[in-house]
Amino acid sequence: MSLLDVQNVTHTYDTGTGRPVLHNVDLSTKEGEIVALVGESGCGKSTLGRLIAGLHEPSSGSVSFEGSDIAGLRGKRRKEWRRHVQMVHQDPYGSLNPGLTIGSTLAPGMLQHKLANRRTVQAEMIKLLQQVGLDATPVFLQRYPHQLSGGQRQRVSIARAISLQPKLIVADEVTSMLDVSMRVAILDLLLSFQRDRGIGFVFISHDFGVVRYFAQGGRIAVMFYGYIVEEGPVEDLIKSPSHPYTHMLLQAIPVPDPVLVRKRDEQGSSPERLTGEPSTKGCVFANRCPLVQDVCRKEAPPLKDIGSGHRTACFFSDEIPPLKHLTVDEASPQATRL
């Protein structure tokens, strides 16, 4: 049974434009699986994450957890679902209450869900601090968020999420505001919970490097203006993208190697139409697509299976050119990290 099932979800924010931010989105994950949502700003990836975490109700369609539509959950079962799906937000400065100590941030959830009582909660919290790599002392529980660095705050947010022993964590751009030297440590910490406790992740990021590192062995769904345009296993999708938008995203990534950069620049300039509005008729990507043909402006391509769990919404997925600079590790053996 799948852990999470997003079925035909369309969502519109009440802003007066009436334009949906999500269109007929389908997505499911299994227990302990990592699914990454990738796309440019405004593509709907955070909205989808928030619907999955139950922060909004979809305008139409359903989000089911362990087989039950979450909109219909009541009482004890609703409370249980609440505990099982947790969220870690992007901004470690905005997502912790500045007026609460770390202890007061962590304790209420565990008490509410009876995962600790008044006598044991202190010891449980210190255990949590240790699990997320913070200073595991009673003094630390007395600290306020403003006394901590961004990396430490993000660890507190993670402690808050895992304190409820969830089955799924929605992680929304959790490393984008951290320094480079902190990022990998935070990703490794989250991965350890996936490995040791089988916690599944919906991992939202616009950084393919981070996604490839975190979601290895999992899946990626690429979103464009409210549509999932491609979805598939991480390595497969990154090595041979089957949608021109995914190709464009991968080709745009800055390469941390000046020699490769020069080689690539010698092969030609960046594609045009890197940014711009979506098309309102036919394929949503048609306005910006380098491969666009007449049919794309008339008809929207369905998200269809192209084998080995890989789906794409493009009529011309066979014509996507190979990536220019991402092929350097072709010769090296596949790494297995998880």
Binding site: G209, R212, H325, S332
Partner: peptide, 14 residues
């Protein structure tokens, strides 16, 4: 420490 799309995570170290 840069997670890259070029290399699979083996050399990435915090």
């Amino acid at each position: 420490a840069i997670p890259s799309v070029l290399d699979v995570g083996l050399t990435v170290e915090p």
